[in-house]
Simulated scan of single mutants.
Amino acid sequence: MAPCPFCNIDHSRIMIANDHALAIMDGFPLSPGHALVIPRRHIASLFEATKDEREALLDLLEQTRTELIGQYNPDGFNIGINDGAYAGQTVMHLHIHLIPRYKGDQQDPRGGVRWIFPNKAVYWK
């Protein structure tokens, strides 16, 4: 089994950190500023996180958002967690995607994360 890429992150990649979590830029960004918020403890699911870890993750998510607004000036964000292999999780260490969105990056951004099922994404018609 390959070592976990999030358990031994090079310190130079860390944008912001607290006692329970850290934030890095995504290695395969979907948009400029795509970041990941990751617990320090190796857990696969948000549902395994302690209350303190959840609070730390959300606090760091907010701090990372503030940093990205200052650096990239996005028009919105998608926030996502792939929880489990059948939800698309490929690295089995919890990580929260913070994906900046920009006016014009998609012709019609409505539906956001619902597009994982394209035939169900357009619910407003």
Rank of each mutant, 00 (worst) to 15 (best):
G27T: 05
F6I: 04
G84N: 08
V122C: 03
H11I: 03
F28K: 12
F47E: 11
Q106K: 12
Q63L: 12
C4E: 07
Q106T: 14
H11E: 15
C7P: 01
K125G: 11
V37H: 01
S45I: 05
I81R: 05
L36T: 07
K103I: 10
T90E: 14
R54L: 15
H11L: 08
I81W: 12
G33H: 08
A121H: 03
N73D: 14
F28Y: 11
G104I: 06
G27D: 11
F77T: 09
N73C: 04
L30G: 15
I38Q: 02
R40N: 13
R41A: 14
F77D: 07
G80M: 12
M92Y: 13
A21N: 05
C4N: 09
A85F: 06
R13A: 12
I69M: 14
M1A: 14
I16D: 04
P29H: 09
I16H: 09
I43K: 09
I24Y: 02
Y72L: 04
F28P: 01
D52E: 15
P29E: 08
D75V: 04
A87P: 10
Y102C: 09
I96Q: 09
P109L: 05
I81F: 15
P3R: 11
P32N: 14
P100H: 10
L68M: 14
G112S: 08
F117V: 08
E53R: 02
L57A: 03
V37F: 04
R40L: 10
T50P: 04
L60T: 04
E67T: 13
D105T: 06
E55W: 01
S45D: 10
L98T: 08
I69G: 00
M1S: 15
K103Q: 14
P118H: 08
D19K: 13
Y72Q: 14
L68Q: 07
N8Y: 02
A35P: 00
G112T: 05
H11Y: 00
P118Q: 06
A49Y: 02
S31Y: 01
V91A: 08
K51M: 06
P29N: 09
P74T: 09
K125Y: 10
D105N: 05
R54E: 06
A87V: 10
A56K: 03
E67N: 08
L61C: 13
V113M: 14
N73T: 13
D19T: 11
Q71G: 00
N73E: 14
E62D: 13
N119C: 00
H42W: 01
A2Y: 02
